[in-house]
Design a binder for these strands. Structure first.
Lengths: 145, 145
DNA sequence: GGTCAGTTTTGAATCACTCAAGATAGGGGC
DNA sequence: GCCCCTATCTTGAGTGATTCAAAACTGACC
């Protein structure tokens, strides 16, 4: 009963007004398998399925999907851009300072406090983004090395 | 009564255990003049004072100052790294989505809510970082073009 | 003022990403 | 099911930000 039927990605793409190419389907499926993957990670995941895919195509697909609102692009400091399928909800990310692993975090207090700073320096504010930094379970458990 | 006496940067550097080279003093002074400058901006600001300075030296100085805790490095998505002298306090940034201008923002509710997400996915959390996105006063006032 | 490790200069290389031109393949209409 | 048109992908090259390495230099302790 998982929602990952073969055709669902095609329907998702078409409903967003995009052509359902096999590269796009493969990228969506890759992101289902590894959330928060970067462009190269998606590329690696797509290759076995579509060996002729180019890295540039992956960049193009990710750009199109991002623009269509089907994927969300996150860019933690010091890391290449990551992409995830979870869109439309207000969730944030926690990044491991040692290995770069990323986890999803729901905002404990909702969006209101974070969205209303005391003084915006005259800026017109549209969105707020929270990034947490810490250690992932694996790195916290590992010795100093 | 400004705190920007000639010698103060040298004292600051020495107290942090760093050699007070003229390049480092010049970088600190550049950051006083333009907060949130990127490496190239600092380089440009330093050149008139020290024409023989290389861009690589600026990167090296900024890296050393960041490591020593004298400057803070921020990396908004889609922008080169920016550097600022304001360290040690809990303040965040607002970035103009059109021109990339950056402003400082004090957290309206303190750091507590942002630092306590409901579920950290097993991560050990150390810091939280908030980035606001919006339009700067100039871009908000400007027509669509 | 001399000495030496920490810094900077010079030159090159890497990484993530973008651009452009031509080849290819979805998918609506028949 | 087949054709055509255009969106998309492939191939190849280029850019900007940043880092690496070796040699020249210089700040700071003595």
């Amino acid at each position: 009963m998982t929602a990952t039927r073969i055709g669902s990605e095609r329907e998702l793409l078409r409903s967003a007004g995009l052509r359902a190419t096999e590269q796009r389907v493969a990228v969506l499926r890759a992101l289902e398998g590894s959330p928060h993957a970067d462009a190269n990670g998606v590329f690696t995941a797509v290759l076995p399925e579509l060996p002729d895919t180019s890295l540039q195509a992956v960049y193009g697909v990710l750009g199109a999907l991002t623009e269509a609102g089907l994927v969300r692009r996150i860019e933690p400091a010091g890391s290449p851009a990551r992409y995830e399928l979870r869109v439309g909800d207000n969730h944030h990310h926690i990044v491991c300072t040692r290995c770069g692993a990323i986890g999803d975090v729901d905002c404990a207090v909702g969006s209101a406090p974070c969205l209303t700073p005391a003084d915006t320096s005259g800026f017109t504010l549209t969105t707020a983004e929270v990034t947490y930094w810490g250690l992932c379970p694996d790195c916290a458990a590992a010795p100093l090395t």
